[in-house]
Amino acid sequence: KTRWTREEDEKLKKLVEQNGTDDWKVIANYLPNRTDVQCQHRWQKVL
């Protein structure tokens, strides 16, 4: 388990703006080493 970088956080924010929060698998495709569940959790709990 690796810490999220600032770059990953920024990328996640942009991806959510573009794609919404309905399909985390699509978002995870753009973030290597991150699963859809990790992306969703990061968005809901941290950002």
Score class of each variant (00 low, 15 high):
K1E: 05
K1C: 02
K1A: 12
K1I: 15
T2I: 08
T2G: 06
T2P: 09
T2V: 07
T2F: 04
T2Y: 06
T2A: 06
R3V: 13
R3Y: 15
R3D: 09
W4K: 02
W4Y: 02
W4Q: 00
W4E: 02
T5D: 07
T5S: 08
T5G: 04
T5A: 08
T5I: 06
R6C: 09
R6D: 09
E7S: 11
E7N: 09
E7V: 09
E7K: 12
E7G: 08
E7L: 09
E8G: 00
E8P: 00
D9T: 07
D9R: 00
D9Y: 01
D9H: 01
D9I: 07
D9P: 00
E10K: 13
E10Y: 12
E10V: 04
E10N: 15
E10F: 14
E10G: 08
E10H: 11
K11W: 06
K11E: 07
K11V: 06
K11R: 09
K11D: 05
K13P: 01
K13I: 07
K13R: 10
K13M: 15
K14M: 15
K14A: 08
K14T: 05
K14N: 14
K14D: 13
L15M: 14
L15C: 06
L15W: 04
L15D: 01
L15T: 11
L15N: 04
L15G: 06
V16I: 04
V16C: 08
V16K: 03
E17F: 12
E17Y: 05
E17I: 13
Q18R: 09
Q18P: 02
N19V: 12
N19W: 15
N19A: 10
N19D: 08
G20N: 05
T21F: 04
T21V: 06
D22S: 11
D22Q: 07
D22H: 15
D23K: 08
D23Q: 11
D23E: 07
D23P: 02
W24N: 01
W24L: 01
W24H: 02
K25Y: 07
K25D: 07
K25P: 10
V26N: 13
V26H: 13
V26K: 11
V26D: 10
V26F: 14
I27H: 03
I27S: 01
I27V: 07
I27Q: 01
I27Y: 03
A28T: 04
A28H: 02
A28K: 03
N29K: 11
N29H: 15
N29S: 14
Y30V: 08
Y30H: 13
Y30F: 11
L31Y: 11
P32R: 10
P32C: 07
N33D: 09
R34S: 05
T35P: 05
T35S: 03
D36P: 14
D36C: 11
D36I: 08
D36Q: 13
V37D: 13
V37E: 09
V37L: 12
V37T: 12
V37F: 10
V37R: 11
Q38F: 00
Q38R: 01
Q38P: 00
Q38I: 05
Q38Y: 01
C39S: 03
C39T: 03
C39K: 00
C39L: 03
C39I: 05
Q40F: 05
Q40T: 04
H41F: 11
H41W: 12
R42A: 03
R42M: 02
R42E: 08
R42S: 01
R42Y: 07
W43N: 04
Q44I: 10
Q44M: 11
Q44R: 10
K45F: 09
K45W: 10
K45Q: 12
K45C: 10
K45E: 13
K45A: 12
V46D: 15
V46R: 10
V46G: 09
V46Y: 15
V46C: 08
V46E: 13
L47G: 15
